[in-house]
Design a binder for these strands. Structure first.
Lengths: 182, 182
DNA sequence: TGTTTTTGGGACATTGATGTCCCACAATGA
DNA sequence: TCATTGTGGGACATCAATGTCCCAAAAACA
């Protein structure tokens, strides 16, 4: 099926580019188990593949985050669901946010999406309710949310953390930091 | 002076490669305000420049970290000095740790250095004294130490955080996380 | 079965980065 | 001042990635 091949290429592209942003089209084609000609048939040039991968990854991430229903329930619980959802799509996040340049390009092929404001609004709600640190900006909390999740994903990737322990470790670090309260 | 030019190239390389690991030799030469010929005269090929930049960055980072004297005093204070030292050499850290592949290559041109164990030993000491979270591994704390510092450096780079506020924000996040303790 | 669609691989041209060489020019120092 | 050293830029070959085209084989479908 044609849609099948397309999805395989996009998934392979996100995964390969997350691990190495300099990955060759040949690398990606091989990862997708597809000939380089076929890849070019679906995506005429590298830029188009990149754009399509960005759009697709946003879609996957958005979908996963939407399922977390971050606007419902207490902020702390909502954040835990959000983190779980983000860890689940770690490779897509690593692709999108692992390299600042990818994000810049996204504005060229994608309108400001709804998922980021979603996380930000949860953070702001949590700050208003006194659950998240009000001494730092909501944007900083959001940056750290991505950073901790990414670090957890990468740690699992390198075998430093067991896959099943990533979510709880990320949540724990997000909530408590690394020091014991005095 | 010859050493002067060499240092300028190495600093420019670390800085340029931290912001864009695909930076061209022409880009680096321009950033160092030096002709491409001159760059090649000092470093015959890209790999040699990369190796030299790795070695030099490790040296700079080690030196800065050494000044923090992390083996002295209470772990919490030592960690604050360490974080301050790391933020000071943020661009070098971003170059060394921003891309996992750079770190892999470093083993090819550099023996396992003394600075990383230094951070790790501080963490282990702090855990033993009940100052740092004993529920997660020391390696995880070390990963997060780099991740938070890097995020702070990048946030300042993008104007999201004021330069003078980076250190305190990083320390605060490291110690307390992003949630308010219940 | 025969027809249509999709695929994989080979054979190019093109492009951009890289590495080499050379020479004129500027800076440094005796 | 002259001589040595370091520098910048141009010219060039090389190489890897990219993009295009074509055709035979495989797969999907009737």
């Amino acid at each position: 099926m044609r849609g099948r091949t397309r999805r395989a290429i996009l998934a392979a592209a996100a995964s390969a580019l997350a691990r190495d942003r300099g990955a060759t089209l040949a690398d990606i084609a091989e990862a997708a188990q597809v000939g380089r000609s076929t890849l070019h048939r679906y995506f005429p040039d590298r830029q188009e593949l990149l754009n399509a991968t960005i759009v697709d990854s946003f879609r996957v991430v958005e979908q996963s985050i939407a399922a977390a229903a971050v606007h419902q329930g207490p902020p702390r619980e909502a954040m835990r669901r959000l983190i779980t959802a983000m860890v689940d799509v770690g490779d897509r996040l690593a692709f999108l946010f692992g390299d600042p340049r990818v994000l810049e390009e996204s504005t060229a092929c994608f309108e400001p999406d709804a998922s980021v404001p979603t996380a930000l609004s949860l953070i702001e709600r949590g700050q208003a309710e006194g659950v998240f640190d009000p001494q730092v900006s909501a944007e900083w909390i959001q940056e750290m949310l991505y950073a901790i999740t990414y670090t957890g994903w990468e740690a699992a990737e390198r075998g430093l953390l067991p896959r099943h322990g990533v979510t709880s470790t990320v949540i724990r670090t997000f909530e408590n930091g690394l020091a014991v309260r005095p």
